[in-house]
Design a binder for these strands. Sequence first.
DNA 1: GCCAACGTTGGC
DNA 2: GCCAACGTTGGC
Length: 134
Amino acid sequence: MNYWLVKSEPHKYSWEKFNEDGRTFWDGVRNYQARNNLREMKEGDLVLFYHSNEGKEVVGIAKVVKTAYQDPTTTDPNWLVVDLSPVETLKKPVTLEQIKADERLKDVGLVRQGRLSVMGMKREEFDRIVELGS
DNA sequence: GCCAACGTTGGC
DNA sequence: GCCAACGTTGGC
């Protein structure tokens, strides 16, 4: 089991919309490092959902329901998507500020490599963020 | 809206 | 294969 974090701009695709949909394919990844992360995702892996720009906070937990396949929005074989479903909304969203301030989350990808849109994280980091959000 | 960080592109 | 120019992302 692996743990991940994905970013979305709320005005583009929000957590609320994701919950209405119940399931979505995670498209729009156009960065090789992020793509490689997508490819590593396995069914059942848990994924934190982060709102970038507006909010700047982790709002919920999703899970991988289908492993990587060709991005249906392009014919370019370089790009992949995975299918995700919402699992649970955090009671209290965890802000970037909180994450930066937390000693145990100093090395999290979100802080170290701000621009990456799909990143792996350690189980301890995942658990810590969920703990902060409950 | 600005700017820093960083990935990608293209000329040499 | 190097590196400058350029584009994009995302925090502020």
